[in-house]
């Protein structure tokens, strides 16, 4: 009884291995995949708000958009060297990478000089974008401004 099982097991390993080779498909780890981040709580200060030139092509937001720059400060110690963001300026963008519009700025009270609670996400595993900011009081997935009123 053990012999046929052993034979089948050997055959399975043999043929599965053979199958992998014969397909010509490379066997390798995939690139990309899940990512993990370290989260650092801090404050984002709005440095400037400037009207942005409308996009050259269609596909962007239908509203007048603004370039909002902010800096980030935290009292926590950022362990990752590539997560040292102090003194740098970043763009505040929606999750779909669009620039915010007038109504969005008004809705969330975004003005130059104001501070917002913000989290700095620094990648620790995976190959996604290494540094991502998250605002607790600003819903960056709030695309209401581009939606047509019913």
């Amino acid at each position: 009884m053990e012999y046929p099982c052993l034979l089948i097991t050997i055959l399975i390993f043999f043929f599965t291995g053979f199958s992998c080779l014969s397909t010509g498909e490379p066997v390798r780890r995939p690139v990309g995949g899940p990512c993990k981040y370290n989260k650092y709580k801090g404050l984002a200060r709005i440095i400037s708000i400037h009207k942005k030139e409308p996009p050259k092509k269609y596909g962007g937001p239908s509203y007048e958009s603004y370039e909002v720059k902010f800096s980030f400060h935290t009292d926590q110690i950022i362990r990752e060297t590539y997560g040292q963001v102090e003194g740098k300026q970043y763009l505040l963008l929606l999750k779909n990478s669009w620039y915010p519009g007038t109504k969005f700025l008004r809705k969330y009270g975004i003005e130059a000089g104001k501070y917002f609670e913000c989290y700095l996400n620094v990648i620790t595993k995976g190959t996604c974008t290494p540094v991502i900011f998250e605002f607790s009081a600003i819903n960056l997935s709030d695309y209401f401004e581009n939606q047509k009123s019913p």
């Binding site: 995939p30 690139v31 990309g32 995949g33 899940p34 990512c35 981040y37 763009l91 963008l93 999750k95 779909n96 990478s97 669009w98 996400n121 995976g126 190959t127 996604c128 974008t129 991502i132």
Partner: peptide
């Protein structure tokens, strides 16, 4: 600026 995968691992 919009060429940003963010926290999604689909660089490929």
């Amino acid at each position: 600026v919009e060429r940003n995968q963010g926290a999604c691992g689909n660089c490929w």
